[in-house]
Design a protein around this nucleic acid. Structure first.
Lengths: 189, 189
DNA sequence: GGCCTGCGATAACAATTGTTAATAAATGAA
DNA sequence: TTCATTTATTAACAATTGTTATCGCAGGCC
């Protein structure tokens, strides 16, 4: 779970085990809600096995916002870090093996890690990359047609198309499942 | 230019003037390009007066990505911070009074500021907020219709609608200027 | 003033997407 | 296995948006 950080800050030696003990293992079936839209998030998750989606309710329909897979950390970042109501729901798509940490413990770990300049830089770089990812994802929405977005997804993130039910992908692409079905049909010709 | 930071780190007293001297004043007419798509950014700008837009070329048409106004810092963040070719062009919309700083100097200032925990926290919070802004902007694209996005813009950021030519706003909303004109016509009834 | 350019509105038609509904296939649980 | 639920496809029609082109207006520049 801390593989990357261990390389950067080996001087923390004994601390890693202590950190790992703050995480709690959790197995959940598919379609389990881990955080409800509107609630304040107190837990951050790490995915050992399975996948999740973040979605929100829009006029009675659910709109999928993002997917998460193995070896990824998951939270409603604004809710978890700022203590405000979450704009999104977190839900398992497949049966999952997760590890969660309480906000209180997470903050303690971060406090310690932040004393190490190398780790701090690494964290800042991670945040920058996350921001750049959101920006380029957003750019594709004002640049490309739904058909182009689907073809991009097939090329750039085929694991999503292979693993995620199509109607979730449709709303992730900003279209209806009917329209995605038509687009797929048009491509196979 | 450092108003916010002065409150957080008054102990830097004499440094502010030194920092301010690293900035160069620059006046430009409208439609001046400050950074070309594909070039590596070496300068970050601060807007004293006027406004800019970030746009990129898509199949011969330019697509506006973001607007910037007075008292805002502007750069192609991935190009400036990571030294990679910029995915966007920066261009003035109105005649502007700008202040720019060279990357080398910027890094020096940041190095000093990063030694102060309070400033570091403030910077991290700023980055977090930027990311949250991009996320919620993106959410509006998979949630709302073009008409709803325009109505949101009118409500949330009326200064953009008042000040920016309509065809730039259209591509910012992900639609053509013809379609935006139709939407405006439909609203006025 | 006269001219050019940029900007916005509108029309006509093509293309795409949304909506609703019906159906079929796949999946999962008892 | 059987049954119920979920998921994907297709059709028909409505609504929206894109494309192309024309027109009028206002601002800036000579």
């Amino acid at each position: 779970m801390f593989d990357q950080l261990k390389k950067i800050a080996p001087q923390l030696q004994g601390s890693w085990e202590r950190y790992a003990n703050l995480y709690h293992r959790l197995e959940v079936p598919a379609k389990t809600i881990l955080l409800h839209e509107g609630d304040v998030s107190k837990k951050a998750y790490y995915i050992e096995k399975g996948c999740l989606r973040a979605w929100f309710n829009n006029k009675g329909k659910d709109v999928t916002f993002q997917f998460f897979f193995e070896q990824e950390g998951v939270s409603s970042i604004e809710s978890f870090r700022k203590g405000i109501p979450s704009p999104i729901t977190l839900e398992s798509i497949e049966p999952c093996v997760l590890h969660w940490i309480h906000k209180k413990d997470y903050n303690e770990v971060m406090k310690e890690l932040n004393t190490i300049p190398e780790v701090r830089e690494q964290m800042a770089a991670l945040m920058l990359n996350r921001q750049i990812n959101y920006m380029s994802h957003f750019m594709s929405f004002i640049r490309d047609t739904p058909k182009e977005r689907y073809l991009n997804l097939l090329k750039e993130k085929p694991h999503i198309v292979k693993r995620i039910p199509q109607h979730y992908i449709a709303s992730y692409l900003g279209i209806t499942s009917v329209s995605l079905s038509r687009i797929r049909n048009a491509i196979n010709k």
